[in-house]
Design a protein around this nucleic acid. Structure first.
Lengths: 235, 235
DNA sequence: AACCCGGGCGACCATCGGACGCTGGTGCC
DNA sequence: GGCACCAGCGTCCGATGGTCGCCCGGGTT
C-alpha cells in the first residue's frame, strides 16, 4: 500500500478545452543552424521580443458563443482519479496533464537550444511558457502552473496519498483552495524523512526535477524543521 | 604527458594587494534562524538592499600613497606557473586563486542559505559576489571573474596545456588579451572530444561545475561543430 | 612630462523567478 | 436575474546573468 504508480488515467481529460492541436511535436531538425556570426549578440531567440503582442483578442467574445475562444479557463474542482469534471469546470487529472505537457514543451525548447548552441534550460522557465503559448497552448501560463506545483509533486511522489486526499476533499465538498493547502503537509513529512532536503526530493524524481520548489513549501519545511529541533534538543 | 594536476603553486600570490583578512571563514553557525513567520515575503537576504552604497570611497586617494586603497586592481600579465609578477602587475597564479576564493565564498553562501531554508545557489551568482564584497574581498567582481572563466577552465581541465600556453605567450611577449583569446581553442578541442557537450565538460569537473559556461566559448563550440559536420557529411 | 595602449570594473540592460490581487466566470437562491 | 464567492492569470517587481565601453593606470618615449 505504497507507490502504486502508473495506474492513474491518461485518458479523456480536458473535456472543456479543445486545444490539443499540439501534443505531437516530433523533435524535428529545423535545418542547419546557419552559422551565426560569432561576435554578434545572439540569434533571435524564439520570438522573445518579436511577436510579443500576439495575444488572444480579449473582451471581444460574443456572449452565447461558449466553450471555445474562452476568456479564461474554467476553474478546477476537486475530482477523484479518473473522474470527469461536469459543468464548466476542469478536473485534477487535467491539471496534472498540464504539467506533463509542460515537460514536453521543455523537451522541445531543449532540443532547439542544443541545435542552436544556446544555453539549455533544465527547468520550466519563462522561455518554456513562451514556447507553449507560441505552439498554441494558450491555456498554459506561469502563475497557474506555479500555483499547483506542490499538488503535482504529491501526485508524482505518493500517488496513493494524493488520490486519497482527492477523494477525501471531494467527499467533504471542499473547494480547490482547501485541497491545495492540504497537499503541503504530506510533502513536508516526506521532506522530514529525507533529512529536510526538499530540493533533493524534487531533483531525485524524474518528473519533478524540472520544477522549481515552491517558496511556500520550502518555508514550511524550514519552519517544521526548526520546530522539530527545538522540541527535542537544545543545541 | 597529460594531466599532471596539483603541482602548481598555491604559494605567494597576490603580492600587490594585501586583502587577505578573509580566507578563513569557518562555516560558522550564525545562531538559530529565528523562526521566520511563514506568510511573510522573505528574510533580509544578506544585505542585498541594505548597506548597498557602502562602497570604498573612490577618487580620494592621495597620489604617492600606493599599494593600498588602490582605485583599481593592477592589471594581469602573462606569467608562468610559480612566477611572481613584478612591478604594478598581477600574475596568473593570483588570477586563478581568485576563482578558488569565489568557490569558498559560494560554500559560505550555501551554508547560510541552507540554515535559513532559502534557495541554495549551485553556481557563483550575483549573491556570491555580493557576499565576497561584504566579507572584504573588494578585489573580486563579476565582470573580471566572468572575463577569465575559460582561462581558469583550461587551468582546471588541462594543467599541462595551460602551463604551456602561459610559457609560450610569456616568451613571445604577448599581452594578457592575446593569451586569453588563445585559451579558447584547447577548450573547443576538448568539447569536440566530448561530443560537443561543453556544458557537460564543465559540470563533470569538480571545480568548474560552479561556473557558468561563457557565451563566447559556447558559441565557438557551436561554430566549430557546424564546420565539422559541413565538411564531412551532407546530412 | 606627455602620450597612448590596454584592461579593470561600474553600471546598464533584457529577462528572469516570483507574487499579488483584479476581474469576471460560476453556481446558488 | 442578481449576488457572493473564489480562482485564473495579467501584470508588476526586485534581482539576475550578461556585457560594454569609460576611464584611468602603467610603461614607454
Amino acid at each position: 500500500m505504497m507507490f502504486s504508480d502508473a495506474i492513474v488515467v491518461n485518458g479523456p481529460l480536458n473535456l472543456n478545452s479543445k486545444e490539443h492541436l499540439l501534443q505531437e511535436h516530433s523533435h524535428a531538425k529545423f535545418g542547419p543552424p546557419g552559422l551565426m556570426a560569432l561576435p554578434e549578440p545572439s540569434s533571435d531567440n524564439e520570438g522573445r521580443k518579436i511577436a510579443r503582442k500576439k495575444q488572444k483578442r480579449r473582451l471581444s467574445r460574443e456572449p452565447g458563443e461558449d466553450g471555445d475562444d474562452r476568456t479564461r479557463e474554467h476553474p478546477f474542482i476537486v475530482t477523484e482519479p479518473g473522474e470527469v469534471a461536469r459543468g464548466k469546470k476542469n478536473g485534477l487529472d487535467y491539471l496534472f496533464d498540464l504539467y506533463e505537457q509542460c515537460a514536453r514543451f521543455l523537451d522541445e525548447v531543449q532540443q532547439i537550444s542544443r541545435e542552436r548552441g544556446e544555453k539549455c534550460p533544465t527547468k520550466v522557465t519563462n522561455q518554456v511558457f513562451r514556447h507553449a503559448k507560441l505552439k498554441g497552448a494558450s491555456y498554459i501560463n506561469k502563475p497557474k502552473m506555479r500555483h499547483y506545483v506542490h499538488c503535482y509533486a504529491l501526485h508524482c511522489l505518493d500517488r496513493e496519498k494524493s488520490n486519497y486526499l482527492r477523494k477525501l476533499f471531494k467527499e467533504r465538498g471542499e473547494n480547490v483552495g482547501a485541497w491545495r493547502q492540504a497537499c503541503y503537509y504530506p510533502l513536508v513529512d516526506m521532506a522530514r524523512e529525507n533529512g529536510w532536503d526538499i530540493e533533493g526530493v524534487f531533483i531525485r524524481n524524474e518528473k519533478l526535477r524540472i520544477w522549481y520548489v515552491p517558496t511556500k513549501l520550502r518555508q514550511l519545511c524550514h519552519l517544521e524543521k526548526s520546530k522539530d529541533s527545538d522540541s527535542c534538543s537544545y543545541e
